[in-house]
Design a protein around this nucleic acid. Structure first.
Lengths: 139, 139
DNA sequence: AATATTTTGCAACAATGTTGCAATGTTGTA
DNA sequence: TACAACATTGCAACATTGTTGCAAAATATT
């Protein structure tokens, strides 16, 4: 953690509100990625559903979090390690999704390969999603 | 195309019904992947929404089509080239999703890399999704 | 502290997906 | 071909997920 939650919000020119502090805190504490529903449950009845949607949207726009394509096509968001410190470089993520517990891990130390695309295709983003069983669920 | 639509259904021990024939035909004709909504529009008012959901589910279970994780987390299904002929080997797909026209392409001739996972993690499936601009939208 | 701006919560709505059940269609067998 | 057994469909009702407009409340600016 290089920056505090409040500093991260300020750096991104966002007003400091309860919901933003709380939701960003959830991401910082979370080991893996969070779905909208996770946030809704973990924050209790504290915030309106709509506020959560809008907060997530705002965070994505500012590059604080990013969405993860998952093999079950549920929407998940993650704050990767460099997200706080380096900004918008969300091009080379490898994610692991556990089929048992559903946790999504960011494998920050692995980078995506370069893919040779057919003639005329241009790539802007590459996502590599590995599904399987995580270490915790292996036993 | 090695097998006709009816033969494909028979091979998978499915009864031959109008909706299955029609929906499978849509996949065979489609260049890329289809979302539920695409199928709903392309088949007109012919079938109930529920029937489409159930048919897609059945096809996924039988390994005729498979879901694609997309960068915008919309659910898409595709019949990859080998799906008809070889069955259930949906482990090594590379998909390209055009940010402009939304078409999803299966890049069947490219295989996903082996990823070295952390200690204790076991992989069952690897999905590589490249987003960008396709050849058709490049101009 | 007062005003300007942003964010929130509510309500209403739209889209997407699921389930139970009766009616219909398909398949296998005689 | 006709019948019985079985599978699939369509309908209705519902659950979940996501979106929009607007007044009230909170935050930021002076």
């Amino acid at each position: 953690m290089m920056y505090s939650i409040i500093e991260t919000l300020k750096k991104n020119q966002l007003s400091i509100t309860d919901s933003r502090k709380k939701i960003l805190e959830l991401f910082v504490k979370a080991k893996g990625a969070l779905a909208h529903a996770d946030i809704e449950h973990q924050s209790g009845t504290e915030f309106d559903r709509v506020t959560i949607y809008r907060t997530l949207q705002t965070f994505v726009e500012k590059g604080i979090i990013h969405t993860i394509p998952t093999s079950d096509n549920s929407v998940r968001y993650a704050l990767c390690k460099d997200a706080c410190t380096e900004g918008h470089h969300h091009d080379n993520h490898v994610h692991f999704m556990c089929d048992v517990c559903g946790t999504t891990y960011c494998l920050d130390n692995i980078t995506t390969p370069d893919v040779k695309l057919p003639e005329g295709f241009r790539s802007t983003q590459t996502d590599l999603v590995v599904s399987g069983v995580c270490a915790k669920c292996a036993n």
